[in-house]
């Protein structure tokens, strides 16, 4: 009985959690919809439907409300027809349905020029840049971080310089990376690497240092030597935390993507965003942002699920006494 009521309590809590998770997406969406669709809620501009007597007005043009009033007034005073229009939001705030449509058209619109890519190709290109940049970063950063955390002399040798180097803004290496590595993908991968590597070493060194000393001491009393201490105690001991660190650092990699994709031959989804913003296709910009968010969120969810598989010992099961 006690167990059952406990179980139902847990389920109730899960339902509530699920509701809140949905809410965290629904609330911004509702706010966006309200601002877009509820007349007069915001709408600081007027969309001109007939120019009337105002020479420079065109149909579909967006003008400030007070300017519209002044122009309408003076048109009337000149004896011309007053322009007409309806309240509207700025061009940078497309309504949800426009963005939804853009999401569809972004995938179905063929590239304008032969040299350009389809939208899904751009996304895939971005993902590969992140993948290689982050992979190289991990291959070097994880072992170095663990060694820094496990051995003081290594930390004293490596960490001061890394502390210094991590203040280099990765974008500052853009021109240098192109000069050294050419104009294609290599400098982009390098930017992601520079953006994540230094932080990674320091974060993982710290995680390693936080390993509970009782495990190390227990291993020592069981006859473990240095190598076994590192491989059989430190590494498995920090693995779940290290995995969490990497999930957070992967988010950092995405923030450097925009810089990476602007250097050399511009490419990828962030270049797509820059391009579309230039054409004032803000519905496309929002569509691309949503795609980016989804990729990030889904990959993190996937990694979290995998984490639970990888580290089964973290889950509790009831045992006897």
């Amino acid at each position: 009985m006690a167990l059952q009521s406990h179980a139902s309590f847990v389920v109730g809590r899960q339902d509530k959690a699920r509701l809140l998770t949905m809410g965290s997406f629904l609330l911004p969406l509702l706010l966006w919809a309200a601002v877009s669709y509820v007349p007069g809620l915001w709408q600081p501009l007027i969309k001109v439907s007939t120019p009337g007597g105002v020479a420079f007005y065109q149909e579909g043009m967006l003008v400030e409300k007070d300017q519209f009033q002044i122009q309408a007034q003076s048109a009337l005073e000149r004896g011309d027809a007053a322009p007409t229009g309806s309240p509207a939001n700025p061009v940078y705030l497309p309504a949800p349905h426009e963005v939804a449509a853009a999401l569809y058209t972004s995938f179905t619109t063929p590239p304008v020029r032969r040299s350009e890519m389809w939208f899904h190709q751009s996304i895939w290109h971005s993902v590969t840049i992140i993948f290689w940049g982050f992979l190289y970063s991990c291959l070097l950063g994880v072992p170095l971080g663990v060694l820094c955390g496990a051995y003081k002399p290594v930390s004293q040798l490596a960490e001061p310089f890394i502390e210094f180097a991590r203040y280099f803004p990765a974008p500052a290496f853009g021109a240098l990376a192109v000069a050294i590595l050419g104009i294609h993908d290599a400098p982009k991968v390098a930017i992601i690497f520079i953006g994540t590597f230094f932080q990674m070493v320091l974060v993982i060194a710290n995680t390693t240092r936080r390993l509970d000393t009782r495990y190390v001491e227990a291993a020592l009393t069981l006859g473990a030597n240095r190598l076994r201490l590192l491989w059989q105690v430190v590494v498995p001991g920090i693995l779940p935390d290290l995995y969490k660190d990497l999930r957070i650092l992967l988010g950092w990699a995405w923030t450097y993507l925009i810089v990476a994709e602007l250097i050399g031959t511009s490419s990828g989804i962030t270049w797509f965003i820059t391009q579309q913003a230039r054409y004032k296709n803000f519905d496309m910009v929002f569509a691309a942002l949503i795609i980016l968010g989804l990729i990030g969120l889904l990959s993190d969810l996937l990694l979290e699920r995998m984490g639970r598989r990888l580290f089964p010992w973290q889950e509790k099961r009831l045992g006897g006494s």
Binding site: R214, A218, T221, L222, P236, L239, F311, W313, Q314
Partner: peptide, 16 residues
């Protein structure tokens, strides 16, 4: 290994 030790804090390796 000539001395075995049992600690107050539970110190089994949780990953094993």
């Amino acid at each position: 290994q000539d001395r075995g030790m049992v600690f107050q804090q539970f110190s089994l390796f949780p990953w094993l």
